[in-house]
Amino acid sequence: MLTDLSGARALITGSTTGIGFSIAEQMLATGAQVIINGRSSERLDAALERLNSRGQVSGIVADAGTAEGCAAIAEAAPHVDILINNVGIFAPRPVFEIPDEEWERFFAVNVMSGVRLTRSYMPGMIERGWGRVIFISSESAVQVPSEMVHYGMTKLAQLAVARGFAEAGAETGVTVNSVLPGPTSSEGVQHFVRELVEHRDRPGDEVGREFMRQFRPTSLIGRLASTEEVANAVVFLASRQASAITGTALRVDGGLIRHVI
């Protein structure tokens, strides 16, 4: 299936590395104009250098986890057709040791970034009669990991937020969906995995498989997904071919979640 997003303008938050960067790569391959985002000008410039030869791409330095950062993004790019709410943070911590400020910081970055930016951009999409909003949630929304309950809480909240915005955009040509990746081989997850398993000096794919055996044994693929595999699903939901899919959550979890629906 050929996905052509020529003329569409896509904004991807938290996209200098990992899943966000892979989404940017694949969006450019569809012909979309892409705006990437990160907090560090150094990392943003490095990502732009890698992407510049692939299509029309620009960047915005801003912290999407704050109200001020979201306002700066909306001012720098007042019109987008596709919004990918990808920015997110995670860290393992025993639930009784998570202080108030960490609960609040996780919620601000993982949930409120998407709320603020969707609120900024979706009315324009509705007015133009077409648009896509995608929240990058996680299988942790459904199977909350005991080692980071605060992260799972925010990922579940994203699903509720996305459904609410989807209903607000009913019959407008604008779709809102969530994607639920399983453990994915991004830079941050690779570091996280090595902190949890024994014999962490082994090659990355072996460490990933050991992590899945120990901590995510219901996975049917038995390995970390690649960032490209997740990006494939995101780009499909952003495409015009996915016009009948809205208000739902697409799992890219390698069969980890033991649900048939």
Rank of each mutant, 00 (worst) to 15 (best):
D4Y: 09
R9Q: 02
L11N: 03
T16Y: 05
T17S: 12
I19M: 12
G20L: 08
A24G: 01
E25V: 08
L28R: 00
A29M: 04
T30N: 06
Q33R: 13
N37P: 04
L44G: 01
L48R: 02
Q56K: 14
Q56P: 08
G59E: 02
V61W: 07
A64S: 14
A64D: 10
I73A: 03
A77H: 00
A77Y: 00
P78G: 07
H79M: 09
V80H: 00
N85C: 15
N85I: 11
V87D: 03
E104G: 01
R105K: 15
A108V: 10
V109Y: 08
V111H: 01
G114F: 05
Y121P: 02
M125K: 01
W130S: 08
G131R: 02
G131K: 09
V133L: 08
F135I: 07
E139D: 14
E139V: 14
S140N: 09
S140H: 05
A141P: 03
V142D: 15
Q143C: 10
S146D: 12
M148F: 13
M148I: 07
G152K: 00
K155D: 04
A160T: 13
V161A: 07
G164I: 03
F165Y: 15
F165W: 14
E167N: 13
E167L: 15
A168G: 14
E171L: 11
G173C: 11
G173H: 07
V174I: 12
T175Q: 13
V179E: 02
T184D: 09
F192A: 08
L196Q: 11
E206D: 10
R209N: 12
E210W: 12
R213T: 11
F215D: 00
S219A: 07
R223L: 06
L224C: 00
V230R: 04
N232E: 14
A233D: 03
A244N: 09
T248H: 06
V252R: 03
D253L: 04
L256A: 15
